[in-house]
Simulated assay, not measured.
Amino acid sequence: MSTSLDSLDTPAAVIDLARMQRNIDRMQQRMNALGVRFRPHVKTSKCTPVVRAQLDAGAQGITVSTLKEAEYFFAEGITDIVYAVGMAAHRLPQALALRRRGCDLKVLTDSVASAQAIAAFGRANGEVFDVLIEVDTDGHRSGIRPDDATLLDVGHALHDGGMRLAGVLTHAGSSYELDTPEALAALAEQERAGCVGAAERLRAAGLPCPVVSIGSTPTALSAAHLDGVTEVRAGVYVLFDLVMHNVGVCTTDDIALSVLTTVIGHQVDKGWAIVDAGWMAMSRDRGTQKQHRDYGYGQVCTQDGTVLPGYVLSQANQEHGIVSCESAPALDIVERFPLGTRLRILPNHACATGAQFPEYRALSGDNQLTTWERFHGW
């Protein structure tokens, strides 16, 4: 069913299809030019039409952050899936069930204990799991340092334990903290070199390592070359957000996700317009707060998507948002945003804002909307 922004109830999550497709094409063309396979992370959208557009553009396989995502997209006919979160023992039966149904599911580990648990479960159930070792190339989160002796111990626990050592995987999450092309390019090379180095250590020890998987949106868009890498993963690029804008890998004109909201009141003496999109719509994510430009809970745009410089969603309660501008005279707020005015808010973090909604409204070039389901849970 199609409708228009004018008739849409608020708040609503809106995807600008032209922007989304441009983002998809930009990333895919870059990966093609760098000569690597691209495996998008679908946790950003959790939406079949978005993922289909990525695959149609040339992506090969997907990355997931939950086994529910794996089950959902496998049911949609996508079989090549990497579960890029450390495998917990209690989830092994769920992973086994997926593989038994024909899903080419790869799982992840970064410890000897976890590797041994995977191997023991696999042997007990007659299953050879494909397992990637997570490598820590930037100290951001989890993984094994490329030069750590534990890397080989984990490799042997998997290989000697009867599992298939599929390769190594890393994520340069600290790229989100950078904001210059030079720093991003340097981290992209650090990510590449670290993961390739880990793969070379495994191979030198007589262990297989066919896959070298790296990825984050900023490093994928900043790498000078990807020698030794076989695949790249990235997720938020498909919609982009204000954090990525501050990092410097997109403009506000590239941000494809926004929240449509309605002005429902004013506080004239404070220069506030009250809207019906609070943190339940935008999320609590204040990812731009520590960056060089703080957008509060989001950048305010007109209904047609034109950025209104200086106007941000400065505060948010559960169902109320406060639109304000430091440079605007307080008495102008009613004239600027009369009751019933519809605005669109660009989010700090597309993944977090998308997660607040059960569906997206996909906006076409002729301003028609189509509803796209988005799923939740673990």
Rank of each mutant, 00 (worst) to 15 (best):
I81R: 09
S364I: 00
H376C: 11
G162S: 06
S111Q: 01
T252M: 15
N367T: 12
L184P: 02
Q29T: 04
Q60D: 13
C250R: 02
L92Q: 00
G161Y: 11
S4V: 06
D136H: 03
I322A: 15
L242R: 04
I81W: 13
T137A: 15
G143I: 15
L105H: 01
A223T: 04
M87P: 01
A13P: 07
R141F: 10
F357D: 12
I255G: 07
S258F: 09
P338M: 08
Y297A: 00
L178E: 10
I274G: 08
A186S: 13
R26M: 12
A53H: 00
Y297Q: 04
S222H: 05
V236N: 09
G296E: 07
G122V: 08
V36Y: 05
Y176Q: 02
G365N: 14
S314E: 13
R145I: 00
L339M: 11
P11C: 11
A115E: 14
D147L: 05
V243Y: 05
N317C: 03
Q289S: 13
Y360P: 01
D304M: 07
D366S: 11
S7Y: 10
V211N: 12
M163A: 12
G161L: 11
H376V: 00
A198I: 04
S258P: 07
K46P: 12
R30L: 07
T261L: 03
A223H: 07
A188H: 12
G310L: 10
D148N: 15
V135N: 05
T219R: 00
G340Y: 12
L165T: 02
I78M: 12
G296Q: 08
H171N: 11
I144L: 13
L187K: 02
L260P: 02
S7E: 15
E189H: 15
A33R: 11
T137Y: 05
L346D: 04
P49V: 10
V334K: 14
V249L: 10
